[in-house]
Amino acid sequence: MTAALALFLREWRIARRIGGASVGAVFFLILVAIMPFALGPDLNLLARLGPAILWIAALLATLLGLDRLFQADQDDGSLDVMMNGSLPLELVVLIKCAAHWTTSALPLIVVSPLFGLMLAMAPAPLALVAATLLAGTPALTMIGAIGAAITVSLRRGGLLMAVLVLPLTIPVLIFGVAAASAASGGAAPFLTPFLMLCALSLFAIAAAPFAAAAALRHVRE
């Protein structure tokens, strides 16, 4: 338990000192801010596309920096030591993902209502849209971790990781945008896609650590 907490705190400290969290939020802000320039000043169109824009931006911002999740530890030799540490590698993967989610996805979720206002979305459902991000981003982080593990020893693995991971995130995106659109005044029900989103995240949290740990063991040989 102490080893797990120590790993979480270590990851959290490193992220905070290097400043990854704020850069992710600024990246999110820029993505949302350039959308009206691309789509034009039609407020109705923006409000209708708002949930989708927020979700795409959250997806890209979550993947940003995820390629270094294991590579930084591989490069400086930490991964060698962790593999023979007292925590199983699966748990190391899970804790590193939890720390990454806390430092990169959580700030996005917190500021997402503000960015929704920038996209002319109605104020009332913004909390529900943030809730869909809260339920869905763990799945994005966990799926991304598998890609990060597979590309751990590649020099420029970031792009390859995105190519591997983005298709796998399509189900999350579908249900996330469906729930967010329903929350901001669609005809479809909110709860069904939202519960699917929760299920996807729970499944990813349960399964991805095993996949990522197996990939790490295999790729490093």
Partner: peptide, 18 residues
Amino acid sequence: LGEQAHYLGHADALKSAL
């Protein structure tokens, strides 16, 4: 055996931010 051993490789396994 690895879990009972200290392995010191070429890399120092230090985090520069810590």
